[in-house]
Design a protein around this nucleic acid. Sequence first.
DNA 1: GCAAAAGTGTTAGTCATACACCCATGT
DNA 2: ACATGGGTGTATGACTAACACTTTTGC
Lengths: 234, 234
Amino acid sequence: MEQTLDLRPFFNTAVSGNCVVFGFDGHFLNVLVIDRVREPHKGAKALPGRLMLPDEDVEEVAIGAVKAITGLEKVYHKQVRAFGSTARHPAGRVISIAYYALVRMEGLNLQEATFAHNPQWYRVDDLPKLAFDHNDIIASALRRLRKRLQQKPVALEMLPEKFTLPQLHRLYEDLFRASFDKRNFRRKILASGLFIPLEEFQENGQNRPPRLYRADEARYLELRTNGNQFAPDL
Amino acid sequence: MEQTLDLRPFFNTAVSGNCVVFGFDGHFLNVLVIDRVREPHKGAKALPGRLMLPDEDVEEVAIGAVKAITGLEKVYHKQVRAFGSTARHPAGRVISIAYYALVRMEGLNLQEATFAHNPQWYRVDDLPKLAFDHNDIIASALRRLRKRLQQKPVALEMLPEKFTLPQLHRLYEDLFRASFDKRNFRRKILASGLFIPLEEFQENGQNRPPRLYRADEARYLELRTNGNQFAPDL
DNA sequence: GCAAAAGTGTTAGTCATACACCCATGT
DNA sequence: ACATGGGTGTATGACTAACACTTTTGC
């Protein structure tokens, strides 16, 4: 006869859903950071997110926080991984499950949430010291995003519906910290059959207005699910 | 003055560390499966692993289970991700953090553990129905392993110290479910500078004995950390 | 007409692919 | 000598990488 094991000591951990929200402002990759409202690390900068209740879905907790702050209804996101080091939180054992999300920054206006004041964008290469191990989480998320962008055209999630090739070019150069030949970049990118040229041009101020493009929705979904090489090599 | 939030409802979750152990038997990719000793799903086939106590490291829980069963001291492993669906476990909310590990099957003799009876290898394309969502976990782990093998030479972790190129060839073909031209495969693989030919040959029985190779340890670590293209394209 | 960014083709080299025969062994 | 799997080179096409000038706009 099997003894019934006392499971109570195991049901003693908290799980936090957090999200690294990436956006591109036309020049640099940015990350969304909030001020913590509660202890621990009250007032410190941190990633959006909160603790999960036992009947909640972790993913919805993490992405729900992003939706609350950005006002967006659909957000492209992926799990990074679980961060499980002991001694992250004074109240007990907390595991953080981290996601990253890609959003269009243009026209967003950031809202406060009950658990998150003063949402701000920071350039990814100019981040302050964040609460917990959130700097490590961002570093991991960025590595994952880079890998994904080499294979899938998800960079589009950070651009406006109508965008120019120079914008896309800058995005890739900033993200990979590399420079790509303009002509080769265009050729390769256009060969994917993903970009539809419009008869519209972006009024840029001083210079020749670049042509606007939009993504072919069906092709985008196809490449996002089945593609496995997108960006130029490094 | 900040009200102190009651955190007790959050510290109410259990975390399980589980591991998909991959091995290669010379012909097929295999996964290590155990029989569950306790409820729930007592007697069912499942992945090695157990619930984490609040002062334990999840990774050590998952990999420790593998070490206990295989007797190995060092095991190459990576986190797959957290599996967090609600209603996975009747006793309450359980999050599983899944890893995969790569081991050399040759000469291993599998041990029982307190939480795991009757460890067995199953071919990855001939798995039984496992407890919880462990079949999904294996499917995810396999996808991750494939991606990693395209970039890093970690297949070596599943081969003996001295191995032949036909062995490596079969490993890649089985893993990617593809066939690679023998000459092109050798050329590409040898061009990595990772394989040192030995003056030894494997007695194979009927045929011409294939030459044995070993990996250049320094080059292996270099390619494992910095490489980003290893396998032949699909 | 000048400054600033957009846009456009060609060439050379490298890399991937396709392909067929001889070799060493055990029976 | 034959059956089985191990081992080797070359030629063609595809893709990558390097490179400079003309166009459009606002001032």
